[in-house]
Design a protein around this nucleic acid. Sequence first.
DNA 1: CTGTTAGCGCTTTCAT
DNA 2: ATGAAAGCGCTAACAG
Lengths: 350, 350
Amino acid sequence: MERKVTIKDIAKEAGVSVSLVSFVMNDSPDKEGRYRYRVNQQTRERIKGIAERMGYMPNTFARGLRGGPTLVVGAVLPDISNPFYGEISRRLEGMCAERGYTLLIGSTDENVENMKRIVNSFMSKMVDGFIIVPCEGGESVLEDVTSRKIPCVIIDRRVEGIPAPRILLDNKAVMRDAVSLLYRAKGIREIEMISYSLRVTSIMEREEGYLEVMKNLGLGSFAKVHRVDFHDTQSQTMDIMPSIIQRGTKALVFATNSLTISAIKALTSLGATIQKDIFIVGTDNSDVYDIFRPAIPHIEQPLQEICEKAMGSLFSIMDGTAPQEESEELVKGVMVFPGMKTEESLINDS
Amino acid sequence: MERKVTIKDIAKEAGVSVSLVSFVMNDSPDKEGRYRYRVNQQTRERIKGIAERMGYMPNTFARGLRGGPTLVVGAVLPDISNPFYGEISRRLEGMCAERGYTLLIGSTDENVENMKRIVNSFMSKMVDGFIIVPCEGGESVLEDVTSRKIPCVIIDRRVEGIPAPRILLDNKAVMRDAVSLLYRAKGIREIEMISYSLRVTSIMEREEGYLEVMKNLGLGSFAKVHRVDFHDTQSQTMDIMPSIIQRGTKALVFATNSLTISAIKALTSLGATIQKDIFIVGTDNSDVYDIFRPAIPHIEQPLQEICEKAMGSLFSIMDGTAPQEESEELVKGVMVFPGMKTEESLINDS
DNA sequence: CTGTTAGCGCTTTCAT
DNA sequence: ATGAAAGCGCTAACAG
């Protein structure tokens, strides 16, 4: 591979002007075989041949500078090292690759300043669109993006008043299912919840869902939500656990998978036997749920569906098929009983 | 925040020329406080202030077009959804952010074609440097990168003859430690290994390490390496497990964490009691090791150290402090006994 | 159908 | 110490 070949080299080689080459190169035979630019069929072929032979690769920067599409989309997530978001990234990356796009990933660590920094950095790289999991207080950053007319889809957390589609999990239903399972299957009433102090809608809705269902089941007096700090999950979970046990709590539900895992660690290290001394229903996805014995029932997020819907919307907006406007789509969590076929088998099993 | 602010806007605001602004913006107080460009100290401050206030972000494309640094580094990893590489990405991203760089991440899925596609895509985006976990058969892709004089650091897998530093785990030692632990602590001789058919050095060295230590301990006749396919880990692990159990195997060691986890799933679903019917020592890092009861001793990779060394080398090469040449650095795995203080306590415990 | 040309935002040489 | 101006490669009016 030699030095870079530009559109100019091709033009010279073909004895035509650069614009003609540019036309040919950009011209996707837009549906129904119609070309946007009228170029002589022969010239077109000839230029394409030469470009091919010379190994022409359009320069991303020149394109980007002109304001053209960069074929890059940015994903702004809380934390790529969290397997949950790792899964999401991977799927988004795959869907992007299928269409020739590259995915840029940034981790906010639930911090608005980081979010702002990342979004700015991505915008200065002219990403064609964004997939964003907004963090607490991230409204202004989202406004910034949409006011610049940059295509954007929000996932995982509801932020209203932003002209962007959002794909969310039906979080209330998640907790409703978790609590109902414990109550119906085991008759447990002393069900408490461990959550984050983080005020993002996914968390808040899960808390609300928990409180609602507890009340509806007539267990309002047992309801209690414990909140721990996002950056100190393990040790704070450990701290609150003894009092939870002492109070005679019989079951726990959780706002996220990381909390579930921290709680499992805390409980086992305190010598409590899970699904006996204390029942738990896990939230989201984790290897741990399958491996732990007895396996831990949990409510998974339909990641593939979320990613497909999000990227689908984003691509539609980017190619002008859909308008950039506020909309909301809820997807349902799925109750999973690892290694079992039905809820009944779980109930009889443990 | 308004529309994009350019160098021009700042120039107008400050009542100076664009060149002056450019000088100020690019001018790092090159070692010993000397500035490359002579700009009035006051003007400099003033311009910096204005740029700051207006939220100026240099346009990557204009820079890239000129051939300047793009402040982007590309990480080419096997799979971002694997928590192990997720952790690595996160750290790399953090280290990049500290210096104003952005990290581009691509997942090869252990496929050379993907690797080639990603590397090409990153090169056409003019990344300033690469961190690469090469996949099987990826030598030519690495050559392509280094022959273009693009700074590059290889991690996790040894590829010789490429003018790039590599940071590797001492894989043989990992297996040596794992096997020795089983033999010394429990007197177990029937130790087998589950590995991948993937022929990358990390895997191969772990197999070699296992075979060597088995031989050295006089257990050569018990040594057996099972290989499963990377893309079908869980089911193939499940397939081979019954025969492993039947043969009277007393302990298992693994080439990676994903294999360890698959094996744990397989064993428990077959009703075997881990650390009783079959002992295992885990490889790499995972939440599962801490949570499983009894906790699973394992050998962690010093991820922080690996990432620091890799990014350190890369930045040195990028800023010209270090030459781009072949070198190798080995880092040591760390044996971890979750929830216990010493190896002794493990031995007495289980 | 094809060519000319004006930038996109930035760096950098050469004047002043 | 500062400014003017020439491009980097490409796209898209606008003219033929």
